[in-house]
């Protein structure tokens, strides 16, 4: 019991340190990087959904972007049609994503490996196309407009002037912290251990009395909730529409997850920062030999794809695996 509570306390300390660090950065960074960091936090939440799904339970999904879209659209409809505040809209988004995850999970529990990958890929393409199909509801190709809005008065009283990007970052931060805290607790708990047992040996897990299908569906539901949360925050930057959640978003998140380390929470953070800041980094690094615009446009995609291949071939555990190489693998 005392071990469990000290574990819980450790998770709390990590989460508080994380919040403090981001808060510190939110003051120090320029508006552009504040905006980038807030996107990295949204991706962090999205990648955590992959760490839970693929890293912990061994199921692959190429459709996390579609679940993000579900979250985004649910929130946008809530705000525009029901007049919800963004906080209530975020809650609505998570609920909608949980439900979508339930449906997806029921279908996915019967599938494995490449079948699951292909099916979720089709879903990732099909769901945004619904927005175009039911244009009057979902706003067609353009999408629906929602935003974080202006920072509340109490915040400006407390901190002085708060810029738009800074507010976006500060509004995202509590959700990223919550996602971090929940993931730490899930993966450290008996539930997390049972997911890993499922991943490592389905037959043995089933012989040990685990309900395989129920567990798989449950993982899908939880993971989808995270994806939905990431999706609504991502949409609140301005627009919810098919072009905001393209198939490439799903693949970008997967890339981040693999590069950072698909079994690691720290890896999720590293991966999120990497995919968001990689284009800036490349631009800075390639400034000296100024490539043509055509090449520069595709350089980030080229480099992240190459990194993805190199990672799976040479170091499938990702960066985080290299960092705590000596620690017992979890």
């Amino acid at each position: 019991m005392s071990k469990a509570s000290s574990y819980g306390r450790k998770n709390l300390v990590i989460s508080i340190l994380f919040t403090a660090l981001v808060f510190f950065l939110s003051i120090k960074l320029d508006p552009y990087n504040q905006g980038q960091l807030s996107v990295a936090l949204m991706f962090f939440i999205g990648i955590l959904s992959i760490v839970l799904l693929t890293g912990a339970s061994g199921q692959i999904s190429l459709g996390q972007g579609a679940l993000m879209a579900v979250g985004g659209f649910a929130a946008a409809l809530g705000i525009l049609n029901l007049g919800l505040s963004i906080w209530l809209a975020i809650a609505l988004a998570v609920i909608a994503a949980l439900l979508a995850g339930l449906l997806l999970g029921i279908a996915a529990a019967r599938l494995s490996g490449p079948y699951l990958a292909g099916t979720t890929l089709v879903i990732a393409l099909a769901i945004p196309s619904l927005a175009t199909r039911f244009e009057s509801v979902f706003g067609g190709d353009v999408g629906l407009t929602i935003a974080f809005g202006n920072p509340p008065a109490w915040l400006t009283t407390l901190m002085g002037e708060v810029g738009y990007e800074q507010w976006q970052l500060l509004a995202t931060l509590p959700f990223a912290t919550l996602a971090l805290f929940l993931t730490l607790n899930i993966l450290g708990s008996r539930t997390g251990r049972s997911w890993r047992a499922l991943r490592d040996n389905e037959v043995a897990a089933s012989l040990a009395g685990m309900k395989i299908s129920e567990t798989k569906i449950f993982v899908f539901v939880i993971s989808s909730g995270f994806a939905g949360l990431a999706g609504v925050l991502y949409g609140l930057r301005g627009i919810v529409g098919p072009s905001v959640y393209p198939i490439s978003l799903s693949l970008l998140l997967l890339t981040g997850a693999v590069l950072g380390g698909i079994r690691s929470i720290l890896g999720a953070l590293i991966g999120a920062l990497l995919v968001v800041f990689l284009p800036d980094l490349i631009e800075w690094a390639s400034a000296s030999f100024s490539p043509s615009e055509q090449i520069a446009n595709y350089l980030p995609a080229m480099i992240s794809s190459l990194l993805l291949i190199l990672t799976v071939v040479l170091n499938p555990g990702g960066i985080a695996h290299g960092l705590h190489h000596k620690k017992r693998r979890h």
Binding site: T54, Q59, L62, P114, A117, L308, V313
Partner: peptide
């Protein structure tokens, strides 16, 4: 793990 063995080539092909 068996699950990852079938997943990793899929990820590589996406790369």
């Amino acid at each position: 793990s068996p699950a990852m063995r079938s997943t990793i080539p899929v990820i590589a092909s996406l790369g």
